[in-house]
Simulated scan of single mutants.
Amino acid sequence: MGRRVIAASVAVVALCLAAVVMVIRAQDPAPQAGDEPTPASIAPLPEQHQAPAPYALTKEEIDRCVAAGQCALVHTEKFSNATVEIYQKYAEQPEIHVLTTAADGKPTVWSLQDEHSASFQSLTCGLANCLMTVIVGPETIATIDMRMVASQLTGMIEGAAVGPSLATTDVDLNEDGVLDLISTEHLVQADGTEALYYRTYVNDDRALVPTGCTVPSPTPTAPTSLQTRVCPAVP
């Protein structure tokens, strides 16, 4: 008789535990197989407003730097009401100075220098913005978004490091009139062979946000639209 009572008690306890497990599972459903982590936004470079900071160079100082052979004009972009000149200062910490001369105002300068020192690579302009590509630190490419405001190119230095990458291409991938970005990246596959792939970034209110990648291949084809495929894991 005692054994029957013990067996019945064990059965009751087992049923209670099973019920508790079922309740917990109902409250915490298993993740769906299709769930993908959302790509994180690229961290922005510190913002620098259009008005020159106290340590920013003036046009006269840039002229003196050029005359001394320390600075060189590396790019000129002409718009209907403004001219943009980009000067590179060659030093242990290279500096970039962007001089904007508008038809209806005095020249303005804003710079990448000191802890934001960089080397100029290229400037590409579209209908609504320009993207300036620079090298910051060892092999790190940064892309800086600049917009046309009040008939002159104004800089809000909010670009972001998108490297290390082999190269970048500025192109309007979603046809909204604003330049987006494609970066070319390198991958060593499991069998030891090397492949290339492209990562796309959408220009979302001055932030370059990654959207996805193409399939790695020895000879990949550059995308013409924003990609959504999951990118290869970076070791």
Rank of each mutant, 00 (worst) to 15 (best):
R3W: 14
R3V: 15
S9E: 02
A11T: 07
V13D: 01
L15W: 06
C16Q: 11
A19N: 14
V21P: 00
V23F: 12
R25S: 09
A26N: 08
Q27P: 01
D28C: 04
D28W: 06
P29D: 01
A30K: 08
A30G: 01
P31H: 11
A33N: 06
A33W: 01
G34R: 06
G34D: 02
E36A: 12
T38Y: 04
A40M: 07
I42L: 14
I42K: 14
A43L: 13
L45K: 03
L45E: 12
P46G: 04
E47Q: 13
Q48C: 04
H49L: 10
T58H: 10
E60N: 07
R64K: 12
R64P: 04
A67M: 11
A67G: 07
Q70C: 06
C71W: 10
A72W: 02
H75Q: 11
H75F: 07
S80V: 15
N81K: 14
A82I: 02
V84R: 00
Y87G: 05
Y87E: 08
Y87I: 08
Q88W: 01
K89T: 10
E92S: 09
E95H: 07
A102V: 09
A103L: 14
A103K: 13
A103F: 04
D104I: 02
P107V: 04
V109R: 02
L112K: 13
E115Q: 05
L123D: 00
L123K: 03
T124Y: 02
C125S: 02
G126K: 15
C130K: 00
V136F: 08
G137I: 10
G137T: 08
G137H: 05
P138H: 14
P138F: 12
T140M: 09
T140W: 03
T140K: 08
I141T: 15
A142Y: 09
M146L: 15
M148N: 08
V149C: 04
A150S: 07
L153D: 00
T154W: 07
T154R: 15
T154M: 05
T154S: 05
G155L: 03
G159I: 06
A160M: 12
A160F: 08
A160D: 15
A161V: 05
V162H: 05
G163A: 13
G163N: 07
P164I: 15
V171S: 02
D172L: 07
V178Y: 15
L179D: 12
D180P: 00
L181M: 09
L181F: 04
S183N: 04
S183G: 14
E185W: 07
H186M: 13
H186L: 13
A190Y: 11
T193L: 15
A195L: 10
Y197F: 12
Y198N: 05
Y198W: 14
V202G: 05
V202N: 02
L208R: 02
T214Y: 01
P216A: 03
P218I: 01
T221D: 09
A222N: 01
L226H: 13
Q227V: 00
Q227I: 00
R229Y: 10
R229A: 15
A233I: 13
P235T: 07
